[in-house]
């Protein structure tokens, strides 16, 4: 049963991720990406990481993708207005994609997870996650929050009008 759910979610994730790349309409791409996120959240649930699953939905599906959709709707992209990209750009895209693939494959091959190895199945629950984050990983956690703060300040700096600049 769990196995079947796993396979279903995996195929859903892969197929919709491919559709993100292959669909011509950017809106459809975004919608497929949302489906991918849901499939990933399903995987998190299978790993008993409920907090991560819900936060993934809230942050990525609920906020970031809404903003993506928001921007793309305003751009009003159509097939006629699609620009032909130069060969060099396509070439660079393929190269960077291959590099990413190589890194992922390398990481996967390097990692050795024994099938029966002991993993704390309760680690994904929010209490344990919080304890780990605020004890073992306190410094990275705080650094990440500083990073967010910097990003926020930067966004405000970019969005702010200079004095004297006309409103709207």
């Amino acid at each position: 049963m769990i196995q079947n759910v796993f396979w279903f979610l995996t195929f859903l994730a892969i197929i919709s991720a491919c559709m993100v790349v292959f669909s011509r309409n950017p809106i459809h791409s975004v919608l497929y990406l949302i489906i991918t996120f849901f499939a990933l959240s399903g995987h998190y649930l299978l790993l008993n990481a409920q907090f991560l699953a819900v936060v993934n939905i809230i942050v990525y599906a609920g906020a970031i993708m809404v903003l993506f959709l928001f921007v793309i709707m305003f751009l009003n992209l159509r097939r006629e207005t699609e620009v032909q990209k130069p060969i060099a750009v396509k070439f660079a895209a393929v190269i960077s994609g291959l590099i990413l693939l190589a890194v992922l494959l390398g990481a996967l091959l390097k990692a050795d997870i024994q099938p029966g190895s002991e993993v704390d199945s309760q680690i994904g629950l929010v209490e344990n996650l919080g304890k780990v984050l605020f004890s073992d990983f306190l410094l990275p956690f705080e650094l990440a929050s500083v990073l967010f703060l910097v990003a926020m300040v930067g966004a405000i700096m970019l969005g702010k009008r200079d004095p004297g600049e006309p409103t709207i």
């Binding site: 409920q50 907090f51 819900v54 609920g62 906020a63």
Partner: peptide, 18 residues
């Protein structure tokens, strides 16, 4: 009964806009 109930509600609400 889930131990992240309020986050679940929050997630569903954030999807409502779609």
């Amino acid at each position: 009964e889930v131990n992240i109930g309020i986050l679940y509600v929050f997630g569903v609400v954030s999807l409502g806009v779609y």
